[in-house]
């Protein structure tokens, strides 16, 4: 793999708190700290994996990067610009450059639109090619994601889950982004089809020089696709390291618990499971670099 040196995404102490309860005067009484002080960097051309238990804040981080949420505090710098400081108008070019693919290939595509319209929709928003020129471009994109020109006028229900995910990918790529937030893009797919989609994401990455944030539950796939991985727990990052380093030498007890829970597809390999329960009320400290590129949140 090439060296990734140029910083593309720089997340600084990001917080996103949701209001859970209000008193009779409408004052906030109860907050849910979905993301509570997260910092990490992604270099251009790199894939950064994000793993952690359900509710740990992975998708919320992704949605903040896409500015689908306004964050409570913190900064997201993209290609040197502080997005948190920008209004909707100044954000528009970044809304083209940063695209997303979501988990559910069933609900994320409008059932009333055909493939050409679906893929054309983001192109409309950003005023890209129209008419014949667009049709040709979309057809070539379809072929690029393993679908066919004949599929241009078909509707989502005529496709399998894996094919719908290819349509979502083509849709995201239609506006030539440089960064794609992939939120569990393969979780709803069959094992045999997951590998098809992962290979395709890797090919597209090297062809178009894409940078990925890859959020996932499946720890073996995350290891396969990511250059570096961040482990989230309770709205905080507890460990960040290059993929192999994280799997070979996990340091945080939660990372160890997580990795030891992966069922190994070999009947003769029995993994020693370690458990970890966070002490109630304990605070997760900030990340600290313990060896080059390996960060852990431990005293």
């Amino acid at each position: 793999m090439s060296e990734h040196n140029e910083l593309l995404v720089d997340v600084r102490n990001l917080k996103k708190h949701f209001t859970k309860g209000r008193d009779v005067w409408g004052r906030t009484t109860d907050v849910l700290k979905a993301v509570d002080g997260v910092s990490f960097q992604i270099k251009r051309g790199e894939t950064f994996g994000l793993v952690g238990e359900s509710g740990s804040g992975k998708s919320t981080v992704g949605r903040c990067l896409l500015r689908l949420y306004d964050y409570t505090s913190g900064e997201v710098h993209y290609d040197g610009h502080d997005l948190s400081a920008l209004g909707e108008r100044e954000l528009k070019p970044y809304r083209r450059r940063i695209q997303s693919i979501f988990q559910d290939p069933y609900s994320s595509l409008n059932p009333g639109m055909n493939v050409l319209e679906l893929i054309g929709e983001p192109m409309d928003i950003h005023g890209l090619q129209r008419g014949e020129e667009r049709k040709e471009f979309v057809a070539s994109l379809l072929e690029r994601v393993g679908l066919k020109r004949e599929h241009l006028y078909r509707f989502p229900h005529e496709f399998s889950g894996g094919q719908r995910q290819r349509i979502s990918i083509a849709r995201a790529l239609s506006v030539r982004p440089d960064f794609v937030v992939c939120d569990e893009p393969i979780s709803a797919l069959d094992v045999s089809v997951q590998a098809q989609v992962i290979n395709m994401l890797e090919d597209l990455q090297s062809e178009f020089g894409l940078t990925y944030l890859f959020i996932a539950h499946d720890l073996s796939m995350v290891r396969h696709i990511s250059d570096r991985i961040g482990v989230m727990y309770g709205g905080r990052l507890v460990e960040v390291a290059p993929s192999d380093e994280l799997y070979d030498n996990p340091l945080h007890p939660y990372t160890k618990a997580l990795l030891s829970s992966i069922p190994v597809p070999d009947p003769h390999v029995v993994s020693e499971r370690v458990e970890w329960v966070r002490e109630p009320g304990s605070v997760i400290p900030d990340l600290r670099e313990v060896s080059p590129g390996h960060f852990v949140a431990m005293e």
């Binding site: 098809q196 290979n199 396969h224 192999d244």
Partner: peptide, 18 residues
């Protein structure tokens, strides 16, 4: 079985889907 990612570290093998 072949479509599962390998567990060895060090190099990235291409996945073999069906």
């Amino acid at each position: 079985l072949r479509s599962l990612p390998k567990r060895e570290s060090g190099f990235k093998e291409r996945l073999v889907p069906i």
